[in-house]
């Protein structure tokens, strides 16, 4: 699961770990993506005829406190399922953010 630790923080009287997760939401295969198709037209117009498909999506970066990686992954997955994606149209993936950020 793509979650990375960002140090420790003091929450509700004890130390928890701070995690950062990136949730990627993409349209499912077969769902029409007129925005992606329009961008593909522009990409081909630019001269990159080798490109076959452009898919558009959304990316969310969440910073949260949790006891361990599994707990953080559970929370992020629940949020992605319930709010960040619509299962009729979209698939989501929790993935790592490579840049280190601290606060």
């Amino acid at each position: 699961m793509g979650i990375r630790v960002h140090g420790r923080s003091y929450v509700a009287g004890y130390f928890t770990l701070r995690y950062e997760a990136v949730v990627e939401v993409l349209l499912k295969d077969g769902v029409s993506d007129p925005e992606g198709m329009t961008i593909l037209d522009a990409v081909v117009s630019l001269g990159y005829g080798s490109v076959e498909r452009v898919a558009t999506g959304k990316l969310f970066r969440l910073l949260l406190n949790a006891d361990d990686e599994n707990a953080a992954a559970d929370v992020v997955t629940q949020i992605a399922e319930q709010l960040l994606s619509n299962p009729v149209l979209e698939d989501f993936r929790v993935r790592d953010l490579l840049a280190a950020a601290s606060s």
Partner: peptide, 17 residues
């Protein structure tokens, strides 16, 4: 109503944008 799952399916961007 679709987001609340009171009705099935979903509404996506118009074909033709």
């Amino acid at each position: 109503l679709t987001e609340a799952k009171l009705l099935p399916g979903a509404l996506q961007k118009n074909a033709g944008l």
